[in-house]
């Protein structure tokens, strides 16, 4: 099976899943709004939107919350979609079949993970599009679309991380995904809803190798929340390129390690 075949199969699975479970479909549409609602209701009860605008340095705090929620769900979904598919096959007992059949396991993880991740990300952004239109009309909708475009670039290093998480979970023989803490960690260190500067110094340092941080920075620039500078854009692009190499290199090493381990002890 080629790349196109895996993409087609994965899309068919995602669509069938949503079609056969209407409640899940409705929940996934509303799910991003609950995040916005929690932040907004809790924040407003204890303070004001003006304080938020001042703390984050953004012009339109409401639209920023919508965009930030979309980034949060997309980023965490990418790792989850890539890593959870391997675990799901292990629970079902189909992992050895997937592993030994063509195409290669790595290709399956990358293509299937990328397809499902982009599908879920697009779903999340589409779900939030009406909110963006209501807040600021067509211009806000376009801003959200730009943020989605940036998110796709940011997805590339995240896929590498997701594959690493999947391999670690298989090797660790744990019930769940032992690296699933990566999901919230990426969002937490990405400073989606708050400036990174409020975190302890060590966490600020750690955030420099977190792709989501650059996606958030780029999204702020692309969406016009801050005035873009040439140097700022280049810094973000270089950082993301470096992280794409780093995390996908790490994933390649992980796949080799997995192959060696499974030859020795089998796959279960």
């Amino acid at each position: 099976m080629g790349v196109a075949g895996i993409v087609k199969a994965e899309l068919y699975l995602q669509i069938s899943w949503l079609r056969s479970n209407r409640v899940l479909f409705a929940l996934q549409l509303f799910w991003p709004y609950t995040a916005i609602l929690v932040i907004y209701v809790m924040g407003s009860a204890y303070g004001s939107v003006e304080n938020l605008a001042s703390a984050l340095g953004v012009e339109d705090p409401l639209l920023y919350i919508v965009a930030a929620s979309a980034i949060m769900f997309a980023a965490s979904g990418i790792i989850d979609q890539t890593a959870s598919v391997a675990l799901w096959h292990r629970w079902l007992g189909t992992l050895p079949y997937i592993y030994t059949s063509t195409p290669s396991f790595t290709r399956y993880l990358v293509v299937s993970g990328l397809t499902s991740s982009l599908f879920q990300s697009a779903f999340n952004f589409l779900a939030l599009a009406p909110a963006a239109f209501i807040i600021g009309g067509l211009s806000s909708g376009l801003r959200l679309f730009l943020v989605f475009a940036v998110m796709i670039i940011g997805a590339l290093p995240l896929i590498g991380l997701g594959i690493t998480a999947a391999i670690a979970s298989i090797l660790a023989r744990e019930e769940g995904n032992v690296l699933s803490f990566l999901n919230p960690l990426l969002v937490f260190l990405g400073g989606v809803f708050y400036p990174i500067e409020i975190l302890p110094k060590i966490l600020q340092e750690a955030s420099t190798i977190i792709p989501v941080r650059y996606v958030v920075d780029a999204a702020r620039l692309a969406a016009g929340f801050q005035t873009p500078t040439g140097q700022g854009i280049l810094l973000i692009l270089y950082s993301l390129a470096l992280l794409i190499v780093l995390y996908n290199g790490l994933a390649s090493l992980g796949v080799s390690r997995l192959e060696r381990a499974t030859r020795k002890r089998g796959l279960y």
Binding site: G47, A55, G176, V187
Partner: peptide
Amino acid sequence: NWAVIDGLWISIYVLGALMF
């Protein structure tokens, strides 16, 4: 791992709310 995940998710919302 679960506790860390919970702690991180909650922190994201708490810090977000504190910005208000």
